[in-house]
Nucleic acid binder design. Structure first.
Lengths: 342, 342
DNA sequence: CTAATAAACGAAAACGTTTGCGTTTTTATA
DNA sequence: TATAAAAACGCAAACGTTTTCGTTTATTAG
């Protein structure tokens, strides 16, 4: 806290009472125009700005919202945060960003800190590891507004904003099929979150819709939690695929890191893309066109997702009194961007 | 603000006074062990956590620090933020991240908001556009601790933590020279910040040290502020280079986006890297090895930079009383990672 | 001219803490 | 036994707001 000039200071200087100053600055009808004028002038001249803590304490609100994401180090996440940031600063809420690093424990720690910190609401994209949502619901029961975004779960009942992962996966798979690929592998993330099953289901649906038999051996999961593990899992999966009697001629990968790391690994292992194996994956990296080769991607409207989630949360916060009405689940459309890798 | 159980509640429940509760929880010597025990037990059972706002108001501290960066959507920035996040959560400070989007006005707005918000200190990596540091120094004069990181400026006197950009540029250029490139262009960012001149000087020094004449026409600047402009500037620069009578056989680029976008553009324009022109650039992207071709980079210790900057700021905050001692400027070593593009 | 009304402002409580100091009770010292 | 000291706790002010409810003065209606 640095803030210097207070209502008291102004009151003393202008020989008025604190309440008069406060009312003047809040444009109360109780105060004469002349007084208001005088107060406002002095306040501006001395760079008065109300003390956030005092105001918050009085009003029982902190005008801050907590945001929990897996990691900052990720284009997709950064874009969502950008969206969140835009609407929250517009509505003059501060955001406190915390990282779960895909760990359920750390996520729990983040939530505890945010709750204790007195945020007015929480925006969360759960960690991959998370299976237990009881703490989250307990926060909700305690009256804390909550919005889940990006990675959804039906273990919690509130507003949810995500991408249409089923459709995205479906479209990507169809794209591969229509491009002539016959044997399509699917690399997924190992998580209990719906994001994973949705994509798997989209993939399956596309296959059945095109009379292609679903081969479970073509689906592998990778541990997302840290870069080292991911690389290891991925390398194993790729080698496994390539050792298969009916070796896949295309891979559809779910997940930002998975897609780009997969591409890097395929290169490293000497496979030519798309000649040896085609690749399309979920990712929002702006470097997709600069990759070797340019990577076909399923792109999610990350910015909009963040914006919408923040709007939903703020509306929830600001209408805390009325009945929660009905909670919505919004699914934003993804788009397939075809590039050289398929 | 969600927080429910307060000192008063505990006091009432235990038939003690508020101050006794407070002192118990703060482990004061004035309170008997039995009482402390009882209070602690009750507090834990009912998930008491002190109200951040009230505490902050009382102590005149908010235990939060403001961080201003150009943009979230950037690997390098994300890594620095990660570093900042680690040490600040460890020391139980909240961080408020704001984006300047390379605009001096928006940066100013961020700073005003943070100051008004009552942060205990500010961590800033100035916008490219910023030339006027007077507002920053005025904040400093008002007693707000400040640490500048990443992008340094000598227009402000405080702790500074950055990379050794001169050395990084020098090393990159030497690498190109030693790899046999004769005519080395330099793509820089158009900014008044020292980050730009340091890199330019490193480049120049490497040339003179190897008896290569410095050709001003090989140095171009690009507007970093938005993606569209950057692409435009870059394309113009590249075409300009390639139209030169003595066309460069290598490019050393400064700046994250510039390096990766330059690679993408060279590809798009049909130039082969490194046959037609080699490329090395400052960037921390984890996709460098997956690019087309794998991009040689100058890598900055972003995480450490963030950590160090945060440590410096916190120490500044917590020793606000004593004389500011002497301000340091720390330059962290960069490393050249050679890949296929050179 | 009196009484009611409006206009303009101030006093004080409240939000949840922390902390200096006063008060009571117990214990130790002379 | 009288007294000083220590131990354990409560009171109340303070941090900077907002807001309710007076209080004062000026204005208007009857």
């Amino acid at each position: 806290m640095n803030n210097s000039v207070t209502l008291k200071d102004i009151a003393k200087a202008l020989n008025l009472s604190i309440s008069t100053i406060s009312k003047s600055l809040n444009d109360s009808y109780e105060i004469s125009v002349e007084t208001k004028q005088k107060v406002l002038e002095y306040a501006q001249k001395h760079h008065y700005s109300p003390n956030r803590l005092a105001k918050g304490l009085k009003e029982g609100k902190s005008r801050s919202i907590g945001v929990v994401v897996c990691s900052l180090d990720n284009h997709f996440v950064a874009q969502m945060l950008d969206g969140i940031d835009r609407v929250s600063t517009e509505k003059s809420y501060q955001i406190i960003i915390m990282q779960s690093k895909e760990s359920q424990d750390q996520e729990r720690a983040c939530l505890e800190l945010l709750y204790a910190g007195g945020v007015d609401g929480i925006l969360i994209s759960p960690a991959c590891e998370t299976t237990d949502f009881s703490y989250l619901t307990s926060l909700q029961d305690a009256g804390l507004p909550l919005v889940v975004f990006d990675r959804l779960s039906d273990q919690i009942n509130t507003h949810k904003v995500g991408a249409d992962n089923f459709k995205g996966a479906y479209d990507a798979t169809v794209h591969l099929i229509k491009s002539g690929y016959k044997s399509i592998a699917h690399l997924n993330t190992s998580t209990a979150l719906s994001i994973s099953t949705d994509r798997l289901n989209g993939y399956k649906q596309a296959l059945t819709d095109h009379n292609i038999a679903y081969r479970p051996e073509l689906v592998r999961s990778c541990d997302y939690s840290d870069a080292y593990k991911l690389n290891k899992d991925l390398e194993r999966a790729i080698k496994y695929y390539m050792g298969l009697p009916l070796r896949p001629d295309a891979i559809f990968s779910a997940g930002d890191q998975i897609s780009t790391r997969c591409l890097a690994l395929l290169n490293k292992l000497g496979y030519r893309i798309p000649q040896d194996v085609a690749l399309i994956g979920f990712t929002n990296t702006d470097l997709a066109d600069a990759l070797n080769p340019a990577l076909s991607t399923v792109h999610q409207p990350a910015l909009e997702m963040g914006q919408l989630a923040a709007k939903k949360l703020i509306s929830l916060i600001e209408s805390k009194d009325d009945t929660p009405a009905e909670y919505e689940t919004i699914k934003l459309q993804t788009s397939v961007l075809v590039r050289r890798s398929t």
